[in-house]
Design a protein around this nucleic acid. Structure first.
Lengths: 168, 168
DNA sequence: TTGGAATGTCAACAAGGCTGACATAATATG
DNA sequence: CATATTATGTCAGCCTTGTTGACATTCCAA
């Protein structure tokens, strides 16, 4: 991509690929991810939940009626681990698990009213952080941010990400 | 980003701040972070270590002679948690802990040869992932990526990040 | 009818967070 | 000098969230 041009004004100097630049990028990811999760973590702690619950709630909200298996693929954990989280959410009345209609082995997962309320609280807080960062950085930086993140994903995760995108 | 919507040249259309855009950014962070940690995680698992060990090794390598307290501030964990990790690294001969010269209460931490070797293996793998993503995305995207990440950090983390930057 | 898929559940274990309490050594402060 | 504070280490115990392995149930499909 745009490597060759020696006289291009775009800055093809490859200086952005030095080990030092890459290391800074690694550290930026580390510190930024801390900020990214900080606000939801606080809310979750109040309710006695953790990040695992947040992830389940997020993707159930994103794809209502999704199956356990689909969630497993997206989250990349074992069914035992996910099941423990789902069980507590179901017991607490935040998630509803309905037997599948087409295939009765499957369970379709939905947020209840209370589940949706917690999801809204979590995602409002997390979006506020993102909005502030986006606004500070500006639209061009945001486009670059998204491009790099997508290039950083494993192919399978990129597929999931794309599937969520089109599911708007 | 040529968001040439309403005819305004600057592209201040704010479309990049919609809840939908923010949600995509949140999911991109989630999936990308998985990729970001995947390669080191594999290497660490072979050696019986985890991400906590990686973090300690990374920042000791980054700031040789750093104190335990400084590491605590950067990593944002309790001393008990960090100590458990440091102890195993010291016992295994990857980290050396020297009594401070100026203040003998402090311990100055250094990587041993073997510690540096593991650090190199981990950071080479992680840099390779970053390099691939950076190269795919291009220098302008990388600049935006870094800008957004920095804006996403908590102020205190941003201070630590900046301190590491100048410590080049 | 039988094999396999999807799901749930039990048990056990480990990493890595956390709090609280306490010990030690060294510095800082009165 | 006496005392307080700081830096560090350590022990004990708890929680979340990941893991593996084993096994039961239900149900689709060949």
């Amino acid at each position: 991509m745009a490597e060759g041009g020696a006289g291009t004004p775009g800055g093809e100097s490859l200086l952005f690929l030095t080990d030092e630049q890459l290391r800074k990028g690694i550290e930026a990811m580390f510190f930024a991810y801390r900020g990214f999760t900080a606000d939801p973590d606080r809310i979750l702690a109040e309710q006695g939940y953790g990040r695992a619950h947040h992830r389940a709630i997020h993707f159930i909200n994103r794809s209502p009626g999704t199956t356990v298996n689909n969630l497993l693929n997206i989250l990349g954990v074992t069914k035992q681990s996910l099941n423990r989280v789902l069980r507590s959410l179901i017991e607490d009345g935040l998630v509803e698990s309905r037997v599948g209609t087409r295939d009765k082995r499957e369970r379709n997962l939905y947020l209840t009213g209370r589940g949706a309320a917690l999801e809204a609280e979590l995602s409002t807080a997390q979006r506020a952080r993102m909005r502030q960062a986006y606004r500070t950085a500006g639209p061009e930086a945001v486009a670059g941010f998204r491009t790099v993140l997508e290039a950083m994903m494993d192919p399978e995760m990129r597929r999931h990400f794309a599937a969520l995108k089109e599911a708007t």
